[in-house]
Structure formats: structure tokens, C-alpha cells
């Protein structure tokens, strides 16, 4: 049932307590949290920079705006409604296309405008934000993800999570949505996590609900054949977030859009630890190695350093 804690330590597995005290508390200044905890602030921070983000269609701040929600929604194409201060995929509503007067979710079920209004008012009232604070709702353009991954994802956009420590990418995984995760790629909702080799973006292992899997549960695609293209660009994009936010321990969620290339979906100041299970190795040795680095390097130099140091194949 349980494993020997010393064995875990010898594999360099990072635990929740240690992550909180030794990395998050030490390298992430509290006053910087709002930059990443609030998705609107993140978008504002990255405006006019070479880190691209999904297009913002509208923000809803007041109950009165909800009444004319219809005018705020795009007339064609898909969109996503999410709470500005949500986390873990909570409160995210993905609308595949706006087939007036109904709105289709990725799984085909249809919602009407009242459903959307109700969802927005829940967001404003703080149902999905930490501690029930009042919140804003964001309407974002649906990402048109690269067809390359369409066989690996069920009804949703797969995203790539990269942990960046002091600006160095240290570990990465791809999260594939499944029927269980309802069009969102958050692991605890049932998405599949596929560990990626930092050197080349090649799949290593895959897990769902903490257990190893070989094939995608819905599309039956063999997961070990997955390989992310333009891998170095993607790592560089993630590494640049360090300079932008000054957060030392950071999780970047990146998606690959067909037209716009890699887009930064969101940043996370408390990235989860399941990435270790998906990669089949612990974070600690890598973090320790980065802690020893004295030179200051540019983003691309840091990426090259990591690719050499953390290759698994």
C-alpha cells in the first residue's frame, strides 16, 4: 500500500511540503502572485511582448454586463468562458461553436444563453475562485489546436505544462483531455499526463489518475509515439516567462495553435507534482543542479543548458 519514504527520497521525488517550503516560499515572492493567480493580469503583463496569448474577446465585471452577454460573444467560431482567478480547470466552459441560438460543448451537448449567463454570474459571485472572492469572467477565443495532436486528445485542447525553475525548464509533460476530463486538460479531472523528454519533446511515460497507461483511453492512440514539434521554441517561450514574472518556481501551460504557433495559456505559481509521475522521475536532483548555477544566462542559453543536462534518452 505505502512505499518506503527513504526510497522516495533516494529517487529525488519532491513532496508537497518540501515544494511549498523550499521552493515556492523561497523563490516566489508573495507580492508577485497576483500576476499569475489572475489570468487577466497575466494577459496584461504579456501584452506587446513576444510571448503570445489566446485572444481576449471580452471581460465581464458586472452583473449588468451579463444581461447583454449575447452582444459580447463572437458571432462565429468557438470561445471559452473562464474565471479570472480560477484554478485546476474549475469553472471553465468550452464552447466549440456558436450555432445560434444554441452553443455546443465539445461533447456535443448544447447549452442556451441562459446557461451561459448563469455560469457567468456564478463566476462573478466567486464560486470558483480561491476563498470565494468576487471575480471576473474572461471570454477567450477557442484555441484551434494543431491537427498533429488530434488523435491524442478527446474533445479538448491538449496543453503542455513546463516547470521553469529560475528560468531553466526542468520538466515537461503534455496533458491530453479525455472523456472524463470534459474538454479540459487538468490531470485530477482525468486528463492523461504524458512526460516529455526535455531534450527533444519525445514522449516518455503516460499516466491517468496516477496509474501508468500506454494508449489513450478514448482514441486508443499509442502514447509513446507522441512527439512535440518546434520543441526548442516552446521551451524558449516558457523560459522567457521567468524574466517577465520574476517568479523562481513556475509552471507554464502552453498550447499549440495551428495559425499562431505556441500560445501561453496560463502561468501557475504552485504547479502540481504529478508531472513527476508522468515523467517517471523526481524533480529534486534537477532543482538542486539549477540551484548551483552561478552564471546569468539568456533564455535560449538556459534552454540549451537544460536540454543537455536533463536528457533522458
Amino acid at each position: 500500500m505505502l512505499v518506503n519514504p527513504f526510497k522516495l527520497a533516494s529517487l529525488g521525488i519532491l513532496g508537497m511540503n518540501e515544494r511549498n517550503i523550499k521552493y515556492i516560499a523561497r523563490y516566489n515572492e508573495r507580492k508577485l502572485y497576483p500576476l499569475v493567480d489572475n489570468k487577466l493580469a497575466t494577459k496584461r503583463l504579456l501584452e506587446n511582448s513576444d510571448i503570445h496569448v489566446p485572444e481576449l474577446i471580452a471581460t465581464i465585471e458586472h452583473q449588468s454586463q451579463i444581461n447583454n452577454l449575447m452582444t459580447l460573444l463572437p458571432s462565429t467560431g468557438g470561445f471559452v468562458i473562464k474565471p479570472a482567478q480560477g484554478s485546476g480547470g474549475k469553472g471553465i466552459l468550452v464552447i466549440q461553436n456558436n450555432a445560434n441560438p444554441n452553443f455546443a460543448k465539445p461533447n456535443g451537448s448544447e447549452l442556451n444563453i441562459e446557461h451561459l449567463q448563469h455560469h457567468c454570474s456564478n463566476i462573478l459571485a466567486g464560486l470558483y475562485s480561491l476563498g470565494g472572492k468576487v471575480d471576473k469572467a474572461i471570454i477567450e477565443r477557442l484555441i484551434n489546436f494543431d491537427q498533429l495532436f488530434s488523435d491524442y486528445s478527446y474533445e479538448g485542447v491538449p496543453d503542455i505544462r513546463i516547470i521553469i525553475f529560475k528560468g531553466y525548464p526542468v520538466m515537461a509533460m503534455m496533458r491530453l483531455s479525455t472523456e472524463a476530463s470534459d474538454g479540459k486538460a487538468n490531470l485530477h479531472q482525468g486528463a492523461v499526463g504524458v512526460g516529455l523528454d526535455i531534450a527533444n519533446g519525445q514522449a516518455l511515460h503516460a499516466v491517468q489518475f496516477g496509474k501508468p497507461v500506454e494508449y489513450h483511453p478514448d482514441t486508443q492512440q499509442k502514447l509513446s509515439e507522441l512527439k512535440v514539434p518546434n520543441w526548442t521554441d516552446m521551451l524558449e517561450l516558457a523560459a522567457k516567462c521567468y524574466e517577465k514574472t520574476q517568479l523562481g518556481y513556475l509552471g507554464a501551460d502552453i498550447v499549440l495553435d495551428v495559425e499562431k504557433g505556441p500560445l501561453l495559456l496560463e502561468l501557475n505559481a504552485r504547479p502540481g507534482l504529478s508531472i513527476q509521475i508522468a515523467n517517471g522521475c523526481g524533480l529534486k536532483p534537477r532543482l538542486k543542479m539549477i540551484e548551483k548555477q552561478q552564471q546569468t544566462r539568456t533564455a535560449i542559453e538556459r534552454v540549451l543548458f537544460s536540454q543537455q543536462a536533463f536528457s533522458l534518452l
Binding site: N4, L8, L11, I13, G15, E18, H205, P212
Partner: peptide
């Protein structure tokens, strides 16, 4: 508040990792 060791539940959570090794 200063304890950096593993939580009891993590010993189960990371079990598959150890088994793979």
C-alpha cells in the same frame, strides 16, 4: 509548518514511480 518530509498519502501517490524503478 517547517516540515519538509513526505506526507503519508504521498507514499501511496508516488508508489507507481518506485515500482517502475
Amino acid at each position: 509548518g517547517n516540515y519538509t518530509g513526505y506526507r503519508l498519502f504521498e507514499l501511496a501517490r508516488f508508489k507507481s514511480l518506485v515500482e517502475r524503478y
